[in-house]
Amino acid sequence: MSQYTVAFAGNPNTGKSTLFNLLTGMRQHTGNWAGKTVISAEGEFTHKDHQYLAVDLPGTYSLYSNSADEEAARDYIIFEQPDVTLVVLDATSLERNLNLALQVLEITGRTVICINLIDEARRLGIDINLKKISKRLGVPVVAISARNKIGIEALLDQVELVATSVVTAPPLRITYNDEIERGIAELTPMVEQTIGSMYPARWIALRLLDGDDSLLTSLKANMNSKGKALPGTKEVLGHGVTACH
């Protein structure tokens, strides 16, 4: 009965949609989510005993550049909190692709890293040590070829482990330079106090340091709507606001 949500994130042109279509059997329909106008595809697939709702996020290079696509992908991962975020990477340009993976991992540890186009990489003479990457990132890393259907079962096994919380990991902690770390240290407790434990405080502190206004806007909108969803909270919310005026 229970259905897990799997969000597909990745750079443009990594074969993310190929994988998506493969898993969902091309039964693509487009749907809007989180009040965004950016269209993303949704589909369903089953693996072993579980049903999954796959959400194809827009392909982006980063989550930080404030284009509509990136904000949409970012907001989905933070606010919709999918059970698994599947980050699809291009094996032939991992160096750049990993940036996105790291950005996602800073938000959530409920992540599976999927290195696509592995056959292409082998053909080009690129050897990738998955174990090492997995160790550094703290989450499962699977190499696949979506177009030649290599490694799909193994990937879904890992997705299942993360979805069912058999494998868990905290958000990845990247250590920045002293100045940034001091800022984060100062902001994190305040963030926790303000927005509670719903969202990763360290990450939000980092984004605030980066001056990410759009995240703040989304955060407000989301807390507003979440507040409305919970009648009890709404009341208190009203108090909070009036108290400040």
């Binding site: 290079y61 980063s62 550049s65 404030n66 750049r96």
Partner: peptide
């Protein structure tokens, strides 16, 4: 600004 951000993203 945004372009700097984008360039950094691209490597």
């Amino acid at each position: 600004g945004v372009l700097r951000r984008r360039l950094l993203d691209l490597g």
